[in-house]
């Protein structure tokens, strides 16, 4: 960690004015401090946003839920409104990190957590995400945890969040503010694919602050499942995860949402895969067709081909659990 200056503004305007390329906001600190200890992040100034009034969870005029950027992950997962109205979100959050980390980690910080690619974390080796133009050792290196979908020549990293996979399936919006004022970003457009700018994980500008995440009015309170597959039973990042949310009309599916985690640079959704299920029976054969469509074009690397099969099975199982509407 290199020395830095520290300040703690109490108003959003003030915090935004302090922002700049040499500065970082700090919320829970669980990702930023980790990266600073590894010299991957080297801000000269930290702007502690914990005194900003961004801790509320409130119902919106349209019956949705607005979650302040500083609401801790554990409080959100256990918020009565979230448990009752967005159980998929609750389940996904609780599948991530550890209880201690979830007590510190915030809603905004979770969205902006960076990849767990080993090469990104090791400041002694090249990495296009950390040092644009320096190269990507993961492509030919040890790439068991890396992307099978949507990667580019320059970067094969994945986005590690569990919460974001549920937010993608629930079609949340991210509300941000900056010098140019407030804007709302649909969740699908918030994170990006690496392309030729792998240093950019998302579309947030350096001087923009996340104010809140807004969930639309609740759906999928009966038929949902978050399935996370990892190297140990708990306290590990996903190799593959699936957020599945269905609406059923008798034994037929009327709406389907499926988002995958651990397979791409952002939560992975495929409209065609979801459309395939509409009006269909909730059976294995149809789930398998959706899984095929979700994974079409997968380009596994040397060590992560297992993810294609793992994801295929996981999608079928998650859809089955969701369709069953089991008490979860």
């Amino acid at each position: 960690m290199i020395p830095f200056a520290y300040s703690k503004p109490t108003a959003v305007d003030e915090a935004v004015k302090m922002a700049g390329p040499d500065a970082r906001f700090i919320a829970g600190g669980t990702n930023l401090l980790d990266l600073m200890k590894e010299n991957v992040a080297r801000p000269e100034r930290l702007i502690d946003i914990n005194a900003l009034p961004l801790r509320d969870v409130e119902t919106t005029a349209t019956g949705g839920l607005r979650v302040g950027a500083l609401v801790p992950n554990s409080d959100l997962a256990w918020h009565p409104e979230v448990e009752a109205r967005y159980p998929l979100l609750s389940q996904a959050i609780l599948a991530g990190a550890s209880p201690q980390l979830r007590n510190m980690a915030t809603t905004g910080g979770n969205l902006l957590q960076r990849t767990r690619c080993y090469y990104f974390y090791d400041s002694a080796v090249p990495c296009n995400k950390r040092e644009p133009g320096s190269g990507c050792p993961a492509k030919e290196g040890v790439n068991r945890i890396h992307a099978i979908l949507g990667a580019s020549d320059q970067c094969v990293a994945t986005h590690p969040s569990d919460m974001c996979v549920a937010l993608a399936a629930l079609e949340a919006e991210v509300i941000v503010t900056g010098p140019g004022g407030e804007r709302r970003i649909p969740f699908a457009d918030f994170h990006r694919l690496p392309g030729d700018q792998p240093e950019r994980d998302n579309v947030l500008e350096a001087d923009e602050l996340i104010l809140a995440v807004e969930l639309p009015a609740e759906r999928f309170t009966t038929h949902y499942a978050y399935l996370k597959l990892r190297d140990r039973a708990s306290y590990a990042f996903a190799l593959v995860s699936v957020a599945a949310a269905l609406e059923m009309d008798g034994d037929r599916i009327s709406t389907a949402r499926i988002a995958l985690g651990g397979v791409a640079h952002k939560p992975w959704r495929v409209a065609e895969a979801e459309a395939l299920l509409v009006g269909q029976l909730a059976d294995q054969a149809n789930f398998a067709k959706a899984a095929d469509a979700l994974l079409r074009g997968a380009q596994p690397l040397e060590h992560n081909a297992f993810k294609v099969e793992l994801a295929h099975g996981a999608i079928i199982r998650a859809l089955g659990e969701a369709a069953g509407g089991i008490t979860q």
């Binding site: 520290y6 703690k8 700090i26 829970g28 600190g29 669980t30 401090l33 980790d34 200890k37 930290l46 502690d48 914990n50 990190a97 550890s98 209880p99 201690q100 980390l101 007590n103 510190m104």
Partner: peptide
Amino acid sequence: CDHGQCGACTVLVDGRRINSCLTLAVM
């Protein structure tokens, strides 16, 4: 570990358990 990966540094802040290695005293 000093990186949030083991829990050895767990303390209670206002009654909540956190990893003291991934937070700054000044906060």
